[in-house]
Simulated assay, not measured.
Amino acid sequence: MIQGKSVLAIIPARGGSKGIPRKNIIEVGGKPLLSWTIEEAKKSAYIDRLIVSTDDEEIADVARQYEGEVPFLRPKELAMDDTPGIAPVLHALELLPKYDYVVLLQPTSPLRQVIDIDGCIEKCLKEQANSCVSITVAEKTPYWMYHLSDNDVLEPVIKIEERFLRRQDTPTVFSLNGAVYIADTNWLQKTQSFLEPETVGYVMPKERSIDIDNQMDIVIFEAVLRQMKN
C-alpha cells in the first residue's frame, strides 16, 4: 500500500511462445525466467498482492515453487498469439476488484529491480498521474531512420529542415522497455490502455532494460548478469 492506496501486481505468463518455446519457464541465469520477476516483485514495499496470470498448469506450478500466487487459470482464449497485452490485466481486475492501482510486470524483463518497480509506483502517485510506464534511452535515433518508397527513395521518418550530422546532436529519445506498467484501476478499465496522452515515463538504465524475445537476448542477458555479479 502507498499513501493509503492498495496495489495489485500481475505477472502475465502464458504457455505459448513462438520465438522461444516455453519461454516463461526456460532456465536463464540458473533459474526459470518467470522466477526473476516473482522474486524481485516480492521485495516491493508497496505491492499488496502479487499474482501470476497463466493458462498453463506447468507454469502455475513453477510460479508456486517461487511463492507466486496463482488464484486462477486464465482462459485459453486470453492466451493466444494475437491476444492484446492488456487482456490478462483486465481479466484479473474483473476477478480481483477493489484495488486502487494495478502494476503489470512482464516476466521477459528479468533484470528489472525492485527499485524500478517501487520507483515507477512512487512517480505515478507523486505526479498524480493515471498511469506511468518504464522507458529507457533508445538505441537508435529516429532522426536517422527512413521509410523506403515504392521506387526505393529514402524518406525520413521524422521530417526536419536541418539534418543532424552527429548522433550527439540529435535530441534524446526514449523507448518502452516493457519492464513496469502502473495505472489507476478505474482509469485503466475505462481506457483499456496504459498508454494514453497523459501517461508519464519512468526512466530505467539500459543494463536493466533487457527484454527477452529471442535466443540472442538470452545470450546478452547472461553476459550482462555475469558482468553485474563481477
Score class of each variant (00 low, 15 high):
213 D>F: 12
152 D>C: 13
204 M>D: 03
97 P>E: 02
131 S>F: 11
202 Y>D: 01
23 K>W: 04
94 E>L: 13
70 V>G: 00
203 V>W: 05
101 Y>V: 06
110 P>A: 02
120 C>N: 02
70 V>W: 00
145 M>C: 12
82 D>G: 14
18 K>D: 09
88 P>D: 03
157 V>H: 08
2 I>N: 03
53 S>H: 03
110 P>C: 04
218 I>Q: 07
168 Q>I: 14
102 V>C: 15
75 P>K: 09
74 R>E: 01
51 I>W: 12
225 L>A: 08
190 K>P: 07
90 L>A: 04
160 I>V: 09
139 E>H: 07
165 L>S: 15
55 D>W: 05
12 P>L: 10
219 V>W: 10
127 E>Q: 10
145 M>I: 13
130 N>T: 10
63 A>Y: 02
206 K>S: 09
45 A>T: 06
207 E>Y: 14
30 G>N: 07
223 A>N: 13
113 Q>P: 11
145 M>D: 09
21 P>M: 02
228 M>K: 07
121 I>W: 00
123 K>M: 05
200 V>G: 04
225 L>R: 09
74 R>Q: 08
100 D>E: 12
36 W>K: 12
73 L>D: 00
16 G>S: 15
105 L>E: 08
130 N>E: 08
74 R>K: 08
121 I>R: 03
94 E>Y: 08
84 P>W: 12
105 L>R: 08
121 I>K: 05
113 Q>I: 05
215 Q>G: 00
112 R>E: 02
182 I>W: 10
150 D>P: 11
188 L>P: 06
230 N>T: 08
63 A>I: 02
175 S>H: 03
50 L>N: 07
198 E>M: 11
146 Y>N: 13
158 I>L: 15
164 F>P: 08
68 G>K: 00
90 L>M: 09
208 R>K: 13
83 T>I: 07
70 V>Q: 02
210 I>V: 15
125 L>Q: 04
44 S>T: 01
